[in-house]
Design a protein around this nucleic acid. Structure first.
Lengths: 109, 109
DNA sequence: TTAAATTTGACACTTATTGTCAATAGAAAA
DNA sequence: TTTTCTATTGACAATAAGTGTCAAATTTAA
């Protein structure tokens, strides 16, 4: 999966809302499928409640959308939250990349 | 500040411990300067308690060490925590980078 | 205006995080 | 070894943060 197609401006919540509206499904129906309160799903789509990997995977199934792309968006949201308005955010991302690559290289033996 | 010199294997806690031991300062003295319990500082260095930006800045002052480098390490630790063992971590980092760059470009007008 | 959909806020509940402290363990010096 | 300094551990209560549930209020569409 490439990441180039993923928007730089859309959060995971917004994306999920777009997908739901694209399928013309009301919160009511989707929340029933997920077996959660309609208020919670509403808040998740608007970023007021935390999403979980589990919910994302279920929604990918419901909307017939690529799960990995949603998970990448989800993870990048969490990353964005950590670096927020920090000036050093970009540098921290570069260091994290180096560390991830290092870990990956360490694991494959 | 460049990030190339920052280790891919050292966490912020380990780094702070190295710095403290390099200066041969006991936890007791440093925690007194920070006005926190010695147990908390011990746990922070070993990653059992969360560090804060505030503490990091104070420690940079105490150890006479570059604050930005420590903050980058601190932020990258938090990022690493979010992506943990996720296969998609690296892709999420790339998306986050694009988003940060986009935000930066939006702000400068 | 009705009806459906969504949002909002209050609530009780659980879980996480916090600072404080004392006991334990470890290391180094005497 | 005994003493002393240092560091770690775990328990505790207090606070903060996150959770699901619900009903009322608002918005949207028919």
């Amino acid at each position: 999966m490439s990441t180039e197609s993923i928007s730089a401006t859309t959060s995971i919540g917004e994306k999920l809302r777009e997908l739901r509206e694209g399928k013309e499904l009301p919160l009511r129906k989707v929340s029933a499928l997920l077996d959660i309160d309609v208020a919670i799903l509403s808040k998740m789509e608007r970023g007021e409640r935390k999403l979980t990997k589990d919910i994302i995977l279920k929604l990918a199934g419901i909307y017939g959308y690529n799960a990995d792309e949603l998970l990448v968006l989800f993870l990048s949201d969490k990353i964005m939250y950590e670096i927020q308005d920090e000036d050093l955010g970009e540098k921290a991302l570069k260091v994290a990349e180096r560390r991830v690559k290092f870990l990956k290289a360490s694991k494959q033996k």
